[in-house]
Amino acid sequence: MNAEFTLVNHEFVQRLSATRRGARLARRLAVHQLDAWGVPYGSGLSDDVAVIVSELAANAVLHGAVPGRDFELRLLALSGTLRIEVSDARGEREPEVRPFRTGAESGFGLHLVGALATTWGVRDRVVGKTVWAECVTGPEEHQCQIVR
């Protein structure tokens, strides 16, 4: 069954504590907000967004945290595209895509983001940086796609 998600002109923004609890909450809020916009829990798009938000929020908490500063989750639905943004207060550290290492237990997050998102990148802010990822949400492409 092909689902069509019409996500146009929707925006969700939430600041969260730069803690593991804040990162978990970001994922839950993202899939809840998608459900409110008509993208059901457990759909391909919802599941892919949950992974992307989890990885970007975890990185914001682990590598981008500044004591006393929150991180921000933003979901922006434009015609045919869902943009996920996670902003933190540490601007001097770019996300690092590490090469795969045999037996490694971490370092795969941005590889997952790159595999699930149509495109992703980093941009500076006045304070800190924003790591963003985009997913196609059109009628025939209702989940994030692998593009390499």
Score class of each variant (00 low, 15 high):
78 L>R: 04
120 W>R: 05
33 Q>W: 03
103 G>H: 05
75 L>Y: 01
7 L>D: 03
28 R>V: 15
122 V>F: 11
4 E>G: 14
128 G>L: 04
120 W>M: 02
14 Q>R: 03
118 T>L: 07
86 V>N: 00
20 R>Q: 06
141 E>K: 05
126 V>L: 15
17 S>R: 09
32 H>N: 14
118 T>E: 11
9 N>Q: 13
131 V>Y: 03
61 V>F: 00
30 A>W: 07
93 R>N: 13
42 G>I: 01
105 E>S: 08
82 L>A: 04
144 C>V: 11
37 W>G: 05
9 N>L: 15
79 S>G: 09
137 T>W: 08
75 L>I: 00
121 G>W: 08
124 D>G: 15
18 A>Q: 12
127 V>P: 04
62 L>N: 05
30 A>C: 08
113 V>H: 09
107 G>D: 01
71 F>Q: 13
119 T>W: 12
75 L>K: 06
75 L>E: 00
129 K>W: 05
21 R>L: 15
40 P>L: 11
83 R>E: 10
116 L>E: 01
131 V>K: 15
102 T>H: 11
97 V>H: 09
79 S>Q: 11
12 F>D: 04
129 K>R: 07
1 M>T: 07
93 R>G: 06
49 V>G: 00
99 P>G: 07
147 V>K: 14
63 H>M: 08
62 L>K: 04
110 L>R: 06
52 I>W: 00
21 R>F: 09
2 N>Y: 14
23 A>I: 01
104 A>Q: 13
61 V>R: 00
41 Y>S: 01
8 V>M: 14
100 F>C: 14
37 W>S: 02
58 A>S: 06
96 E>I: 00
74 R>L: 10
58 A>T: 01
139 P>S: 01
145 Q>A: 05
8 V>A: 14
120 W>V: 07
27 R>W: 12
99 P>F: 12
87 S>H: 14
115 A>H: 00
102 T>P: 13
84 I>A: 03
139 P>I: 00
128 G>K: 08
52 I>P: 00
24 R>Q: 08
14 Q>K: 09
31 V>D: 02
55 E>M: 02
94 E>H: 13
130 T>W: 08
62 L>S: 12
142 H>Q: 15
106 S>M: 15
82 L>Y: 02
42 G>R: 12
128 G>Y: 05
14 Q>G: 03
143 Q>N: 13
8 V>S: 08
102 T>S: 07
117 A>R: 00
77 A>K: 03
25 L>T: 04
104 A>T: 05
85 E>T: 09
87 S>N: 03
99 P>Y: 15
94 E>W: 15
5 F>M: 13
17 S>A: 15
11 E>S: 10
55 E>Y: 03
74 R>F: 04
26 A>G: 06
